[in-house]
């Protein structure tokens, strides 16, 4: 049903009958089971509330999980970094640990929406919304992050490479399941990362292109041992360019390698023509620029110099 501007703008209610605030994970999962798909998890709600107001989704109840204990922390666990499922973008963007050891994620988290949105919106929510160029999905995908999903049947871990299924669709069902943790390996010695974003304005704008790069180098041989390149929106889901990554494995660190990678990535991407976000041709050209620039920055961060 399409709503006129007047109806949409002045419709004040969000049409839910219950707003539930469970205090434990078990309680939250029980409620979701009881409602059998008619209730949905809400954390920051910066996507869910506008969707409810526009009647894009219809629900009987919202299950607010922001009261669940121990889920809003950023922690180091052994050699991994763990973001609790309720960690906000503002927390991640201002965390010194993330800045130092996963700068690409720090920059991505700091680019989402506006300060007011970042104070409320969770990184888990950014993943679950399943948008192809989500500002934290792209760097987390480049970092090979995985997520832990809790449901009535127990817990399961899903690598992000298997998490995004289609536009707006992920492996998590927000009417049944809760994302409790995001886990990734921070950048180590001989590694570097980069995050690049193209948008019409510096703030409050959706990205026309986002690129995140992570490299591991072999300094003795002056080669790239491994590279990950994540891009969006160039496909219905956040996209890992495995083709170019394979080509970079063992490649010498020089400008020819970077130019070849840029050409390869561009040929492999198919952004849509969009009046708002730029034409396919333009964005394919920008993929070249971003992949090359991203690799340069990541290599510099890993301590390499390019001739």
């Amino acid at each position: 049903m399409s709503l006129t501007f007047k109806e949409l703008h002045w419709a004040k209610d969000i049409r839910v009958q219950q707003y539930l605030q469970p205090k434990t994970l078990e309680e939250a999962l029980h409620i979701l089971q009881d409602y059998r798909g008619r209730a949905r998890v809400i954390a920051g709600g910066t996507d869910v509330i506008p969707q409810l107001r526009k009647r894009d989704i219809e629900l009987e109840a919202l299950v607010d999980i922001t009261g669940l204990p121990d889920m809003a922390n950023i922690e180091k666990d052994g050699d991994k970094i763990i973001l609790g499922g309720l960690t906000t973008h503002a927390q991640v963007a201002s965390s010194q640990l993330i800045k130092d050891q996963a700068g690409l994620l720090s920059e991505g988290a700091g680019s989402v929406g506006s300060p007011q949105i970042r104070n409320i919106a969770t990184v888990a929510g950014n993943l679950i919304s399943g948008q192809p160029a989500a500002d934290t999905s792209i760097p987390l995908l480049a970092l090979d992050a995985s997520v832990t999903i809790a449901s009535g049947e127990g817990e399961r871990a899903v690598p992000l490479s298997e998490f995004f299924l289609d536009l707006g669709k992920t492996a998590l069902d927000p009417c049944k399941e809760i994302l409790t943790r995001i886990k990734f390996q921070p950048l180590g010695k001989d590694q570097g990362g980069a995050y690049l974003r193209l948008s019409k304005r510096k703030a409050l704008s959706l990205p026309m292109l986002v690129c995140a790069v992570k490299v591991t180098v072999n300094k003795d041989k002056n080669t790239i041992s491994e590279a990950s390149i994540a891009l969006g929106p160039v496909a219905p889901t956040p996209f890992r360019d495995r083709h170019t990554e394979d080509a970079l494995k063992g490649a010498p660190i020089n400008l020819t390698t970077l130019a070849d990678a840029a050409e390869g990535a561009s040929a492999y991407c198919s952004p849509r023509d969009s009046l708002l976000r730029g034409s396919c041709d333009y964005r394919q050209e920008m993929v070249k620029v971003f992949v090359k620039r991203g690799l340069v920055r990541a290599l510099e961060q890993a301590g390499c110099t390019l001739d």
């Binding site: 709600g45 506008p50 922001t66 007011q116 104070n119 409320i120």
Partner: peptide, 12 residues
């Protein structure tokens, strides 16, 4: 902390 009150459920 600044937040947008138009999309914040009051219960929060």
């Amino acid at each position: 902390e600044p937040v947008n009150s138009c999309i914040l459920p009051t219960i929060k």
